[in-house]
Design a binder for these strands. Structure first.
Lengths: 356, 356
DNA sequence: CTGTTAGCGCTTTCAA
DNA sequence: TTGAAAGCGCTAACAG
C-alpha cells in the first residue's frame, strides 16, 4: 500500500492537517495568493485562480490554523468565562446568553470553574491569559484583584454577579441590596411578624453581603428584630439545624422564611413543608433567585427573578465594544471606553402563593 | 511622564504583553535558556541563572504565549464541547463533570451551542477544528457525520447522548430504550390501564427514537395499545392540546402520563395537576430525566435518572486516553485505541409518589 | 494580478 | 552550562 500522500489528488481524508503551503502547492500559486483568498481579498485575483484555490481547499478539507493566525494578529477571537460553578442557575443562564451573543460575532468561549477557591481562580486566570483570550468575564472570588488589575491593563475584564473595585474593570451586577430590601418589606408588609433569613456565610461575597444588608435594613425600618441563620448547603446537619429551630417558632406565627438563594431553598423546601405550619397562612416562603420549579409547587413560590440573560447579553456587548474600542484606538487607557463602570440591572420580585 | 517602558524594572503593570525575548533580555540570557526554564529543564542550569529568570518572569508578570506553543507543538491542550443547548439539564451536568476532569489534566474547554441546527453545527465544528482543539466531544444532530469522520481521522471525537455510526468515533450513551421499557413496564405493572407517552417529534434523534421504542415495546408486551402525543415545547398550543386530550380520558382511569424528557414535564406538570384527576390514584406521572424538583413536589415525581456526571467523566477519560494514545503511537489508525466503540451507561428508575 | 520575504513567540536540534 | 538558528502556519509590506 503506497502511503506517500504527497499526491494530494485523492486526499478525501487527509491524515495530516493541510496547511496554506499545501493549498498553494496543489493550486500552483503562492501562499500569498491563498492568504488573500482566505481573507476575501478577491479584488485583484483572476477568477481562474480563485476557483482553483476554492477547489483545492474544498478537496483537502483545509481550514486555516487559528493558532498561526492568532499568533500573527495577536487576537484569538476567544473569550474566557470563569465562574464559580457552571451548574449554578445563575451561571447556566448567564453563560448561555453570553455564549450566544459572542458566537454571533465570531467569538469562541472558554468556560472554566473555580469552585470559589482563590488559588484555583488564580491559576485559571493565568492559564486563560496564556491562551491569549481577547477578554475575560468572571464571577470572581475577589481574591485576585491585583492579578485582574494587571490583566485589565491588557485586555477587557468584566466582573459579573460580584462586583469589586478594580482599575479598568467593568462590573455588571444586579441590585442585590434593594431587591432583598424589597422582598423583606414585602413579607413584613403582608403581615408576617418576623422574617427568618437563611444564608450561606457572607465570607466577603458581595452578593451575600448585600442581600443580607437589604434584609436587615428592611427589618429595622419595620422595627422587627432580624433573625439570621447561616448554613452550609453541603452539610445536611447545618440545614437540619435551621429546620429544627424554625419548628420551635410556633409562637411567632405567622412568620416567613426567606433564603438568600435558590439552592438553599431547594434543600430547605421539603423539610419546611413537613413542619406543622400551613403555607402561606402560618409560614411564608420566599427566596432570592427564580428556580424553574417555583411555579410548579403548590402554592407557587414567591421569589426574586435575577436578570440572568440580560446580564449575559450585556456582558457580551461590553466585551465586544471594548475589544473593538481597544483595537481602534490601540490605546488601552483611552477614557472613552467604559472602564471602571458598574452597570446595575435590577431584579424583580415575583409574588407567589407561598406568601401573603 | 516618562512612558518609555523599555526599562522593565518598575513594570508592575505592563502595557504590552511580555515575550520570551523580553525575559531573556532582562535576565541577560538567551531565549533558549528561558525556554528551558519554562519547561522545567533545570538539570543543567546554574542556580543563579534560574533565580534570575524566575525573578524577571515574576516581575514582568510574564506568561508564555499558548498560541506560539501550540503552533510549534501542534497541540493546544484544549477540547471542544459542542452541545445542542447548554442549559439543558443533561448538558449542564455533563459539561460540568467533563470540564472538571479535563481541567485537572491541564485541558481547557471550549463550549459551543448548535441549537440543534445542522448548518450551525457544521460551522461550529469547522470553527473549533480551526482552533486546533485536541479533541471534540459532541451531542450531535447527526447531520454532519461526513465531516466528523474527516475530523475523527485527525483528532479524537466522542459523541455523547446521541450515538451515530461514524468511523473512528467513540459513542457514549445511556440505555434509552431499555430504561424507557422499564419505566413503561413499571407503570403498566402498577396497574395503570394505559400509559400516555408525550415526546417531541423523533426527527431521527436517537434518544427520542429509542425511548419511544422502549415505550411501544413495553406496551405491546403488556398487550396495551400505545398512545403517543407529539409536542413542541416552544409552542404552548401544542402543550395545551395534550392536556385537553388527557382531560377527556376519564373512562381510562387509572392511566399514567410519561414524558420523554424533563423539559416536557416541566411544561405539562402544572396543567396536568389542574385536571380533576387524583395523583397517583387516577393519574400517574412519570418522566425521563431527573429534574431537581422531582423530590420537591407532592407527591414526588417518578423519574429516570440519567448518569449525567458519569458520562462527563467517562467522556473526559476517553478523550484523554485517546489523546495520549495518539501522541504515543503517532499512528491515528492504531487499533488499540477505543475507536468506534460504543459505551452504554445505564440509567436508573427512581420511583416516586406520583405513580403506584 | 501575483510572488518574496520578514516576522508573530515559542521549541528544539546542534554546537560550543 | 549556555546559545544560534531553523521553523510551526499565517499575514502583510513591498516588489514586480
Amino acid at each position: 500500500m503506497d502511503m506517500t500522500s504527497q499526491h494530494g489528488k485523492e486526499a478525501t481524508i487527509v491524515n495530516k492537517r493541510a496547511t496554506i503551503q499545501d493549498i498553494a502547492r496543489e493550486a500552483g500559486v503562492s501562499i500569498t495568493t491563498v492568504s488573500r483568498f482566505l481573507n476575501g481579498r478577491f479584488d485583484s485575483m483572476s477568477a481562474a485562480t480563485k476557483q482553483k484555490i476554492a477547489d483545492v481547499i474544498h478537496q483537502l478539507g483545509y481550514r486555516p490554523n487559528a493558532l498561526a493566525r492568532g499568533l500573527k494578529a495577536s487576537q484569538t477571537k476567544s473569550v474566557a468565562a470563569i465562574v464559580v460553578n457552571m451548574s449554578y442557575p445563575f451561571c447556566v443562564g448567564f453563560l448561555r446568553s453570553l455564549s450566544r451573543v459572542l458566537s454571533v460575532h465570531g467569538y469562541h468561549l472558554f468556560v472554566a470553574e473555580t469552585g470559589g477557591a482563590a488559588e484555583v481562580e488564580r491559576d485559571v486566570i493565568q492559564s486563560m491569559f496564556s491562551q491569549r483570550v481577547d477578554a475575560m468575564v468572571l464571577q470572581s472570588t475577589g481574591d485576585n484583584n491585583d492579578l485582574l488589575a494587571t490583566i485589565a491593563a491588557q485586555v477587557p475584564v468584566v466582573l459579573v454577579d460580584r462586583a469589586f473595585e478594580i482599575d479598568g474593570v467593568t462590573n455588571l451586577i444586579t441590585n442585590n441590596a434593594e431587591a432583598s430590601f424589597e422582598m423583606t418589606s414585602h413579607l413584613l408588609g403582608q403581615g408576617y411578624r418576623q422574617v427568618i433569613y437563611v444564608t450561606e456565610p457572607e465570607a466577603a461575597v458581595p452578593t451575600r453581603v448585600d442581600r443580607l444588608r437589604g434584609y436587615t435594613e428592611a427589618c429595622s425600618s419595620y422595627g422587627v428584630p432580624p433573625m439570621v441563620f447561616h448554613v452550609d448547603r453541603e452539610n445536611s446537619e447545618s440545614m437540619l439545624h435551621v429546620t429544627n429551630a424554625i419548628q420551635s417558632m410556633a409562637n411567632e406565627r405567622p412568620f416567613a422564611v426567606y433564603t438568600a438563594n435558590g439552592l438553599i431553598m431547594i434543600e430547605l423546601y421539603k423539610p419546611l413543608r413537613k413542619l406543622a405550619f400551613g403555607v402561606p397562612r402560618e409560614m411564608g416562603l420566599a427566596t432570592f433567585d427564580q428556580p424553574d420549579w417555583a411555579s410548579l409547587v403548590e402554592p407557587t413560590l414567591t421569589c426574586i427573578r435575577q436578570p440572568v440573560e440580560e446580564m449575559g447579553t450585556l456582558a457580551a456587548n461590553v466585551v465586544l465594544e471594548r475589544i473593538k474600542g481597544e483595537i481602534e484606538t490601540s490605546d488601552p487607557l483611552d477614557e472613552d471606553s467604559p472602564r471602571g463602570e458598574t452597570h446595575i440591572i435590577p431584579s424583580t420580585l415575583v409574588p407567589g402563593g407561598s406568601t401573603l
